[in-house]
Structure formats: C-alpha cells, structure tokens
Amino acid sequence: MATLILVRHGRSTANTAGLLAGWTPGVTLDERGAEQAAALPGRLAGLPLAAAVTSPLERCRQTLEPLLAARPGLAVHTEERIGECHYGDWSGRKLSELADEPLMKIVQQHPSGAVFPGGESMRAMQARAVDAVHEWNARIAREHGDDAVYLMCSHGDIIKSLVADALGMHLDLFQRIHVDPCSVTAIRYSPTRPFLLRLGDTGDFATLAPPRADTAAAADKATEDGGNAVVGGGAGAA
C-alpha cells in the first residue's frame, strides 16, 4: 500500500490571533507560515511524490504553492473530507473564551462524545478523514504502485485523528497527540496494519525548548501545561 505524507498547513493568521478558525473564510498564512511553506520543497526534496491532495481551505492551498511551483508536473487534487473540523458556532471565536465553555471538558476528555453546536461531531470528523485516506491509498496504489508516496495537506485535528486511527487508539486519546504548523507526519499503510514513521516532524529541535513568554507558542504551552490540548492545533513555535 501507499505511504502517506501528512503536512499540517503553515502557521495562519488565526493561529497567531488565538482563534479557532474552522471553515471561517479569509484565514491565510501569516508571515511565519509563508516562510514555513517556502521551506517545504527542500524538506521533501528526497521524496518521489506521486500526487498531492489538499484540503479546500486557503491556508492549505497556500502551503502547497511553493511545492507545486518546484514540481510543476505534480498532480494536485482537492479533497473536502480532509478539510478542517466543522466547529459550527465555535468557529472564529477566541480559544481563551472557549476554554470556559462546558463543552470544552468533553472535547478534551471525551472527544468521541463531542458535538460542536451548529457543526459536526469529532467522531464524524475522524470517520470522513479516515475514509478519505483509505480511498486515496487504494487509488494511489492502483495508479502508481504499492510503493508510491503521496502527500496530503490538512489540519491539526484531522491529522491527529488519522494518527490515532493508524495507532489503533480510541478517539478519546487523540488529544495526547500534537502536530505543529507545517510539520510532517508519515504513515505507511500495509495490507494488515499501518506504520507510523514520523510524527509532527519540523526538523527543528529548538521548538522543544520553552517558548518566550510573549509568543503565541507560550500561550499554547500554558494550555498544554494546564492539561488541555490546543483545539485546532495551535500556533507552534515563533
């Protein structure tokens, strides 16, 4: 079966503003996110990518632009099912405000029971993403062979839910997983089981150091230290 390279989009304007973007229109890469996207072709230079698949949201399409420019023959496809979770009425709101919502405890501790008001459940989010990956695995293998490598550009909660599925973890444990903006996660699928090869790899170990107090990463770290995962994935290092 195919090897899937999952790329989270680069840091966005919503990430740095501390907003839960969801499908809110007009969310683009910020300056740091554009730099991350520009570095992506070099980071993936050794991989013979058969195809690229992207969430329809602008921040993902922008993240892939430098890679597609560097590889003009690379086919790119849009896949709605790997688009961000539909957070409904939570979309566009500040994460600091959402922390006090009763639903946040469910999102953190029992996400399989979480349904966003006016949006979708986290179970439905994971199910559609997993279905999309399995269908694309079969298509890529059929068109390019069982050893093919392909890329999907998606979102933090989507990638975390796919990793949880690959590891055989219940969705209620997926908040233990973290992927930074423009990080690379790799899963090799076989007929009997997936193998997680990379998780949230940015190639920068400096991101493991404590963040400065004046950065968005510091706010993310404070949330994690308090026991909560950053819904939507957070802003990563400055």
Rank of each mutant, 00 (worst) to 15 (best):
I159V: 07
G236M: 08
V115L: 14
A69I: 13
L67W: 00
L103N: 09
M1D: 11
M1Q: 11
T3Q: 03
A75M: 06
P66G: 15
G227F: 02
L208R: 15
G46S: 12
Q126A: 10
A70V: 00
P41M: 04
E65V: 11
G234W: 00
H134N: 09
W136R: 03
A17M: 05
G234P: 06
L40A: 08
R32A: 13
A51W: 03
E97M: 14
Q108P: 01
H178M: 00
A166K: 01
S112Y: 07
V179Q: 10
L197W: 07
L57H: 06
G227M: 09
E84H: 02
L173E: 13
D165I: 03
D165E: 10
P194A: 07
L47I: 15
P117Y: 00
P194T: 04
Q62A: 15
A222P: 03
A21I: 03
A229C: 00
P191Y: 12
G119P: 06
T28D: 15
G119L: 09
A51Q: 07
P210V: 10
C60I: 07
N228L: 08
D147C: 02
V53W: 04
A216W: 04
G200L: 02
T185Q: 08
R71I: 07
G234L: 06
D172W: 02
Q175Y: 05
G145M: 04
L67D: 01
R198L: 13
L95Y: 01
L19V: 14
P102N: 10
A37I: 13
T63R: 04
A39D: 10
A206D: 15
F195P: 03
A229F: 08
A213C: 10
L103G: 08
E65K: 11
D204T: 14
R8C: 09
G22A: 13
V149M: 12
A138W: 09
A166D: 03
A218M: 10
Q175P: 01
H9C: 09
E84S: 07
L173V: 12
M122R: 11
R128L: 03
G92Q: 13
G113K: 04
R81W: 10
S190C: 11
P194S: 05
A229T: 02
L103A: 08
A132D: 00
R193L: 01
E135P: 01
D147Q: 08
G92C: 12
A219R: 15
A70D: 05
D146C: 12
A45L: 09
A114H: 05
P25H: 03
E31G: 12
M152H: 06
G33T: 10
A164V: 06
V149G: 00
M104C: 08
A39Y: 11
T202F: 09
L171E: 01
R11N: 15
A21N: 05
S55E: 09
V130Y: 01
L19E: 03
T13K: 06
Q175R: 10
K105C: 08
E135N: 11
L44D: 05
E120Y: 07
G203A: 11
M104I: 04
G234S: 04
